[in-house]
Design a protein around this nucleic acid. Sequence first.
DNA 1: CGACATATGTCGTGTACACAGCATATGTTC
DNA 2: GAACATATGCTGTGTACACGACATATGTCG
Lengths: 203, 203
Amino acid sequence: MPVSLTPMTETAPSTDSALPKIDPRILRSRRMLMDALVRLLAQKPFEEISIQEIADEATLNRATFYLHYPDKGSLLKAMAGARFRDLVDRRGLSFNSCEGGLRAIALGVCDYLAASPGCPGALAKMPLEDSIIAVVEDIFREGSAERPAAPGIDPELVFTTAAWAIFGAARLWLDMRERISAEEMADKIEAIVLPMLMHATQR
Amino acid sequence: MPVSLTPMTETAPSTDSALPKIDPRILRSRRMLMDALVRLLAQKPFEEISIQEIADEATLNRATFYLHYPDKGSLLKAMAGARFRDLVDRRGLSFNSCEGGLRAIALGVCDYLAASPGCPGALAKMPLEDSIIAVVEDIFREGSAERPAAPGIDPELVFTTAAWAIFGAARLWLDMRERISAEEMADKIEAIVLPMLMHATQR
DNA sequence: CGACATATGTCGTGTACACAGCATATGTTC
DNA sequence: GAACATATGCTGTGTACACGACATATGTCG
């Protein structure tokens, strides 16, 4: 009984956390499915893409799709998260004592939203929140791991709040009629959100 | 007992012949191994590449390598043949009543030899003959399938002879100090080899 | 609404690949 | 030549994927 694959109902698991090593075949199949979805999204809207088409594009059996994802929405979510993580890794984004870490994170979110596959109209239908928010939360969590929380403050709540704040601001920026540059927007986001985080941890 | 994979001691099987459908996992693994070898050949000489390195580069288990190839030389051979077939497919090379078919084949061989991975010095060590010759033979065979052989002539012998003639001339061209263009060389090869083939089949 | 075509979700079975381990071969160093 | 490290070739076991088939759901057309 292949119940050990744990279909992906959440965002893709972190591959660098202290989890047991994931079978490379699993990682490969998931990446192939995600890459296939990206290619198909460049051709047609999400609603018009079938599971069979995704499997065909990925050169995998349709049953394999269901070993990993319960539906195509879950794949979309996982794909969005994985692509954002790629960007985070490529840019080495982190939230530590280094100046400008938060600005870089905000810039990454803006750039990612601006470059998402599919036309901007389709962007509203993509469940980007959970995937991006979870990654940003992880960044804050890791960056604050060595510092004690300020008294009476729940750091997890602050991380979540800050992550949503960044995401919300970036979404607003994306919808702007006359859009300032991503860099400028990142500056503004940092100015607004950084005090929240500074207040939460003793730094 | 995984004896059904038939390790590749010959050139890669033709994927468009009347063979039973090959499991997509097999095709995928072989392609991954070949692509890995190409990438490694761009970095170091063939002799310095280990089986484990190829497997790692392909993100496959070393034991998987041995399911498909008895040694790295066989992989090299298969890779060379597959890449040549790719070129043949891309250019739509065939030997039929169409004028210039032989010239195009000769040009394909020249271009392929000139673009092979690794420096020209390493080219002499690559067992390109069998892979290229077999493909060219196939092209002649298919192109002459609908025509009866001339009396007293063994068409298979002629195909092989012609294929080797083309290969030999292209190799000579590659070693030329002052090399004429591939196009010019293809013209010369056609002029020399075409009468042989015309003589062998009733066209 | 019924008929039909297509897509989805699932299942049991067979096959390919991952893994750890072992014996042997090979290359390097002293 | 001996000692050692590394690579090779192979094996049995466990796991992931391919496949065909089936039941059900969904969408389209008349």
